[in-house]
Design a protein around this nucleic acid. Structure first.
Length: 713
DNA sequence: CTTGAGTTGGTTTTT
DNA sequence: CCAACTCAAG
């Protein structure tokens, strides 16, 4: 049961803990006790006389930060060290030095949905068409620029081609809109902090006095902005300890630059490098499979995966007819595990895309398997929650037009499009904010008297809210929920609104929870904190439920029994990654699978479906190339569903293959011209079946069986 | 001003 | 396939 690292630290772990002064890179493989090393290190630093106040540890998620605080505390480290994510640290620094950073301290933080709306607005403002300039693409480009710390103005100055120039316009407009609304997006938090630290000597000096020892976890997933922040944080003392694993870098698409960790030695030439290659988590066969898989990546630092656990456990690959059968198969396997006394907390199911959770959920409900879907942000994306939060955001930051427009007529209070347009026009003319204009509604001549009255009532409501904004978040959230009329409107919606009401109450409870935990609770702080919530933060390891999550969310976790579903071409690697043409993309998908596999302590269960319904279309699938790279011999089970309600045609369809020569993966074959080789993949699509063969000449070929004349050797 | 029917378009992972 | 948006009727 307990596979935690040995009580005694291993020599290399000890070395990493005790290396106090100077830059240190800990290259830690999965399950190497990395977290343990970091917490011990924090404790050791404090032990050796460093004040907790002078320590800054940066984690990847809030959850990880929380855990690290507790663990360090359990090791006897006194409280006081700053432990948070990069983003939370940035929020703190930007609020503290708001004037120097060029922001107001009550800024809102834009999430993805807000960003998209805002960029859309910016595109329109530039008189451009959203079909030629899709907001999602533009947002991506802007985000990339920000992650590289290229601000709008310098970008515009250097833009020479048409697209860059247009992009520059949109980027400038977007930043302008954000500024007007006193809002920052996720990338701004990093970019503005980097500029603040690099551009203000006094802030930098203050940082130097404060943070004398800096620890950064998951360094392989830092982007350029985070790298520059890290550099600035350690500039004066050079005491950086970065930990990470290049093989677990899975956020390239978000700007993470694997180069940061690969080039650590050239950044800090005097750096000590310590490798943690022993694995205390997984059984040898799981590690062999993981190692075989990742060996296919060409661009990597070689690192061993040394097992310390005895043999045991299974790797099982299941092929099911379709995703429903796959989900049932998983549910049944879980029932078996439960029969063998496995704890529900010890079981997890991973998938590549969130939409795959639906089918699993249905199967688990049917089989009465308790589960939790680890998706923290989902709660905050619900309409009723976003509504309440929009009220709260407007209280804190009346310039946040997105929030204001969301709730100005929610619930409906007779302030429609026409009225809003007139107020906006007035606001633009008088060069005041929309909220300011609403307060002056009675002076707006274009408005009808009834509209004036409604706007006045709206403004009055916010005056009452402002008076009630006295620290703790929960009481205000409750007042807002009731006085805004949201509570009544949900009540009026009957059954439909019942869930929504419960969610609203849950939000108020969550706020109360925050109030209890925070040193100095405030609405601003609360809003900024929940903006930085991540999916993984919602994971409750003590829930007594099977955990369902994306492969990305699985990072940093471990389970006795791991299921990975949908191990198919197009899904893992995902087709949208362009991994067909781009080797880097393919390698990242492989790392993602590697991360998934190495979460498993004892039993690993991989599965794919032969047909999968995607966007309503039932399509034939191909097992993922990654499956064949695992290399170890495994028992492949064909899952047969014995329930009667299974659609007949699916059987027909899948059994109606034209008789053709079949090849097993691993089969030795001979080809007339290429000679001997081994089958690495067999794609069964009837008469057009193909095999991929790795020939002894070194080349790998995909061949159509009906033409290739392969013979089994 | 609100509502609902109809259309369009986007469709991975997330701080 | 679903969510977000548009538009016309009430």
């Amino acid at each position: 049961m307990d596979n935690s690292p040995p009580q005694q630290l291993t020599p290399s772990q000890k070395q990493a803990v005790c290396h106090i002064e100077g830059p240190l890179l800990v290259l830690a493989g999965p399950g190497s006790g990395k977290t343990r090393v970091i917490t011990h290190r924090i404790a050791a630093l404090i032990d050796s006389g460093v004040r907790p106040y002078n320590i800054c540890a940066i984690t990847f998620t809030n959850k990880a930060a929380e855990e690290m605080r507790q663990r360090a505390f359990a090791l006897g480290a006194s409280a006081g060290a700053h432990i948070s994510t990069f983003h939370s640290l940035c929020v703190r620094l930007l609020r503290r030095h708001a004037d120097k950073a060029g922001v107001k301290s009550n800024f809102s933080i834009y999430d993805q949905a807000d960003q998209r709306r805002c960029i859309k607005q910016a595109v329109k403002d530039c008189q451009l068409d959203t079909t030629n300039f899709p907001p999602a693409k533009i947002l991506d480009a802007v985000s990339t620029l920000k992650n590289k710390l290229i601000d709008a103005k310098p970008f515009e100055e250097n833009a020479d081609d048409f697209f860059s120039k247009t992009l520059a316009h949109i980027y400038l407009r977007y930043q302008h809109l954000l500024g007007e609304r006193n809002s920052l997006d996720f990338d701004d938090l990093l970019m503005k902090t980097a500029f603040l630290l690099e551009g203000c000597p006094d802030v930098n000096a203050e940082i130097g006095n404060r943070f004398k020892f800096v620890l950064i976890d998951e360094y392989q997933d830092t982007n350029h902005a985070q790298y520059r922040i890290a550099k600035a944080l350690v500039a004066q003392h050079n005491n950086i300890c970065a930990t990470g694993d290049p093989d677990q870098s899975i956020y390239r698409w978000r700007g993470a630059d694997i180069h940061n960790i690969l080039a650590f030695e050239s950044d800090w030439p005097e750096a000590t490098i310590i490798k943690l290659e022993e694995n205390f988590r997984s059984t040898p066969n799981i590690l062999t499979a993981a190692d075989n898989l990742i060996a296919n990546n060409r661009k990597r630092k070689l690192k061993k995966l040394l097992p310390t656990r005895p043999e045991g456990g299974d790797i099982v690959i299941t092929a099911s007819d379709n995703e429903t059968a796959e989900a049932r198969s998983i549910a049944r396997h879980i029932e078996e595990l439960i029969d063998q006394n496995a704890a529900l907390n010890d079981i997890a199911v991973f998938y590549r895309v969130n939409s795959m959770s639906r089918t699993l959920e249905e199967a688990f409900i049917h089989a009465k398997v308790p589960y939790q879907i680890v998706r923290g942000v989902e709660f905050y994306n619900r309409k009723e929650i976003r509504d309440i939060l929009a009220y709260l955001k407007t209280i804190v930051n009346p310039d946040d037009e997105v929030a204001l427009l969301r709730i100005i007529n929610t619930p409906t209070r007779g302030i429609g499009k026409v009225t809003i347009d007139r107020v906006r026009a007035y606001a633009a003319d008088s060069r005041i904010s929309l909220f300011e204009a609403i307060k002056r509604a009675e002076h707006i001549d274009t408005l009808s008297n009834s509209a004036k009255g409604r706007l006045a009532a709206f403004a009055d409501m916010f005056r009452r809210f402002a008076k009630a904004n006295l620290g703790p978040a929960a009481p205000l959230a409750e007042i807002v929920f009731v006085e805004s009329g949201l509570a009544d409107s949900l009540l009026a919606a009957g059954v439909e609104g019942k869930d929504a009401s419960e969610n609203a109450n849950e939000l108020i409870n969550a706020a109360a929870d925050y109030d209890r935990k925070a040193d100095e609770p405030s609405l601003i702080d609360y809003l900024q904190e929940i903006s930085l919530f991540s999916d993984a933060d919602a994971y409750d390891p003590t829930a007594g439920r099977v955990a369902l999550m994306t492969l990305h969310a699985a990072k940093g976790l471990e389970f006795e029994n791991v299921f990975i579903v949908g191990v198919e071409e197009g899904l893992l690697p995902h087709e949208r990654t362009n991994s067909h043409d781009d080797l880097d993309e393919l390698e990242e998908e492989r790392r993602l699978f590697f991360v998934g596999i190495t979460r498993a302590k004892t039993n690993l269960h991989l599965s794919y479906a032969q047909y999968r319904t995607i966007r309503g279309q039932c399509l034939r699938t191909i097992p993922s190339q990654f499956l064949f790279e695992l290399g170890c011999t495994f028992e492949e089970q064909q899952f047969e569903d014995d329930e009667d309600d299974f659609d007949d045609w699916e059987y027909e369809d899948s059994t109606e293959s034209i008789p053709t020569v079949r090849f097993a993966v691993g089969q030795l074959v001979r080809h007339q011209s290429f000679g001997l080789g081994r089958v690495t993949e067999f794609v069964d699509v009837g008469e057009n079946s193909t095999v991929t063969v790795k020939f002894n000449t070194g080349q790998t070929k995909s061949l159509m069986i009906k033409y290739a004349c392969l013979e089994k050797a």
